[in-house]
Write a protein that binds this DNA or RNA. Structure first.
Lengths: 219, 219
DNA sequence: GACCATAGGCGTACGGCGTACACTTGTCAA
DNA sequence: TTGACAAGTGTACGCCGTACGCCTATGGTC
């Protein structure tokens, strides 16, 4: 028979490496994400990766910029408020899909998608009439809120309406002295009842901020 | 002579380990923070640490709870707004001192200082008259903003009034296609002039949020 | 079709990490 | 003085990122 290379493996490429890297980080988390594990996932020896990325750091840079690329840019058509709102919602969604990226969005060498995103966002605010300094403030509050919310959402494990209650209860149970913390107890007991939807929660705070900003806009 | 042990080294203790660990993480950063480096700092062999902490994870838990302990609890005396404001400012300050802790405040097994902080904060909101669900929302926005701001502050390197401009310029310079991103260029050029104080920036957004919350309070 | 430069993938090896396990040494109560 | 128990040590293992040199498959040229 001598079937020639029954598995003529598709060649590696930077794009394939990045894609597999994101998939691995998504499902295994950042701690379990190693060059060696990634190589295995790709059916290749660890050092093969280094023909396509300079090192792990540069790989992470590339991964983060892909996440930035998944974020909806503020469209010039819509009014500033809904443009900002859509961008914020889309950012949180991307960060929910890629929890590993949350702490890295602004800490690495910015890629093209990052720059485009920041430029477009600042542009939308300026064109909405915010003076430079107010635009800086407005940008700062929004991004701090978005990143912080994503961080909390990931860390507190409030994923589904009532896993939130479960998580709260777990935290309360972790310490047995429940009666020492009456308000934590209230959270653990009442949160499951009132229900908790992270999207609703996110948008509640987002709208509070956007309302505040709107009242500062000239005209 | 035979001076007995000229350096009768003070015994190790959990407290000494934690203190040295925080000092090391503060000055060397989280990546350079290793059990081996910490041991060396304490003039001891790595495995000696394990007589005082279970493992690195549990050590980090302890470090984070010490950071929580440095945060001012909302006092029952003041009105809710200034109590929340002081807590927020104090949290940001603690996180600025201990940048390594930012991503870990809510991700680890909560220690006593953590629980006390959360309970007291939720309590202050409830006693201010916020209904349960609104109090949850109010808590969520504030903490998301605080943690997110601390994260940005650390990652963007906007430490001093004009290192902010320098950092912005550095980011703009990192890519040479400056004219492709006019609004980033504006930031790089104008930010040094208008000055940038992270405390002012933080409190601007904080007040925006607190004002929004105040308008929702019953009475 | 034959040849060869080059890019892609491999194997080995090194120093650093967290920490298991068995040991020696120091300390303090009896 | 003694002996038990706590504190500190030494060695070793399996991970990690990645430098370096080798082999091999690929595709352009004749």
């Amino acid at each position: 028979m001598t079937e020639q290379k029954e598995t003529t493996r598709t060649r590696l490429s930077r794009a394939r490496v990045l894609e597999a890297a994101i998939a691995l980080a998504d499902e295994a988390g950042l701690e379990a994400f190693s060059m060696r594990a990634l190589a295995q996932e790709l059916g290749v020896v660890p050092m093969a990766l280094y023909k396509h990325v300079a090192n792990k750091d540069e790989l992470l840079d590339g991964m983060v910029d892909i996440v930035f690329g998944e974020i909806e840019l503020p469209s010039g058509d819509a009014d500033w408020r809904s443009a900002m709102r859509r961008r914020a919602v889309s950012t949180r969604e991307a960060l929910t899909r890629h929890g590993w990226a949350i702490g890295m969005m602004e800490s690495r060498r910015p890629g093209p998608a990052n720059l485009r995103n920041h430029d477009a966002t600042m542009g939308a605010l300026r064109e909405a009439g915010f003076p430079f300094e107010v635009a800086i403030h407005a940008y700062s509050v929004q991004d701090a809120y978005i990143y912080g919310f994503a961080l909390q959402e990931r860390d507190l494990g409030f994923e589904t309406p009532d896993s939130a209650g479960a998580a709260a209860r777990r935290r309360a149970d972790a310490i047995d002295a429940r009666e020492e913390y009456p308000h934590l107890l209230e959270i653990a007991t009442r949160l499951p009842d009132v229900g908790y939807d992270p999207s609703v929660e996110f948008e509640w705070g987002l709208d509070l901020i956007l309302d505040g900003l709107d009242s500062l806009r000239p005209d």
